[in-house]
Amino acid sequence: MAQALNETLSACFDGEAQRDELRRVLDESNSSEDLRSDWRCYSSISAVLRGEKLSSLESPRNWDELTERIPDDHNIVALQGKRRVNRRTMVGGATAILAMAATLVIGVYVLNPLDDTPSSQSLAVSDDQILNESASSELQVSTSSGTLVNLPLDIQQQHLEKLVVHDANAFVSGSTPITIPQVVTRKVSSSE
């Protein structure tokens, strides 16, 4: 039951939930602390992606805990291509249009938000918002629970830059003497 609700909540943040599913999540969140906790986590991530409430977020305090919460490969939700991308919806208007990097799957971990109570702002999500907003993001991020959300362009760009610089430097320095230069196959566009 809890797992099903969590998946439904994830679908809400993915923009893939139906109206009745959203209502069920909202109803259940009144009685389920776990669900509220998940909701707060997703909301915090949305806030970060919108550039809001950054001051209210703390850096992770316990890195061991963070490491444990890093999803293994089974939990990273791989990019499903444009079919999924085109249905993407973000809560609260986070509809950043990103131009690159379809093959990146990026996880954002925001631990220990200061506000320990359900955020009224995050709960104030209307059906219309969820159902009508769409983002054409080509880059998605996965939260520690596997939810896909969009990532700001500057973070995406920053990771891509470092990937390419790493590729080139690794090869020319002889640090990876027996591998092919990955840079020639590094795919940064989903246009194909």
Binding site: E58, V108, V141, H159
Partner: peptide, 8 residues
Amino acid sequence: GVAMESVS
């Protein structure tokens, strides 16, 4: 305050 991870 954000930790990020990507896989390419």
